[in-house]
């Protein structure tokens, strides 16, 4: 484990990512990286034979509206061959509450990212550059608003049916 940590720290440094510690309940190394360098770091974690992070558990995110409003995106990876997990987080500030920040897609690295990114995009109101097919996944295609934003207000009617109780 020590060895992996050192190698991870070296890679993180080369992508200007900050090591945020080790989360023991999930046995997961936490990294924070700039959004522009996120896809590059993830690709190296996938391709580098020291890590071989071949399993992408999830792409998820959160909306933080207080103080500095921002959208954070988290990637959870595991290396099945090397036996460790990594969480890579990245964030973008929102200048206006309606802004839709864009992040780079990792679909070309892990095919499984496709649906995760579609879900994150429709629920949080983010855009993934170079995503092959960024339609809605769970919501109806003409749904208004982004339900996981903290300032989300559901629409009054959907196809003529009242949404509220």
């Amino acid at each position: 484990m020590e060895e992996v940590l050192e190698q991870l720290a070296a890679v993180a440094q080369s992508w200007e990512a900050a090591f945020k510690g080790y989360h023991s309940p999930s046995s997961c190394y936490l990294f924070e990286v700039e959004p522009e360098k996120c896809a590059g770091l993830l690709e190296q974690l996938f391709r580098d034979k020291n890590f071989w992070c071949d399993h992408l558990h999830s792409v998820t995110g959160e909306h933080m509206p207080v103080d500095t409003p921002m959208i954070r995106i988290h990637y959870h990876l595991s290396s099945i061959t090397r036996g460790f997990s990594v969480q890579v987080s990245t964030q973008k500030m929102l200048t206006t509450p309606e802004e839709i920040p864009s992040f780079d897609s990792v679909c070309h690295i892990w095919k499984s990212a496709n649906w995760h990114e579609r879900e994150t995009a429709e629920l949080l109101g983010v855009y993934f550059n170079n995503h092959p097919d960024l339609r809605h996944l769970l919501l109806p295609s003409n749904w208004e608003g982004f339900p996981l934003r903290k300032d989300y207000v559901p629409q009054e009617l959907y196809h003529g049916v009242k949404v509220k109780f």
Binding site: V161, K164, F165
Partner: peptide, 20 residues
Amino acid sequence: NCGGPYWEHGYHVVKGVDRI
């Protein structure tokens, strides 16, 4: 019948199929 446990926060749930 009425939306059930989703009546308050379930933005995605029709609050009773009798609306349709």
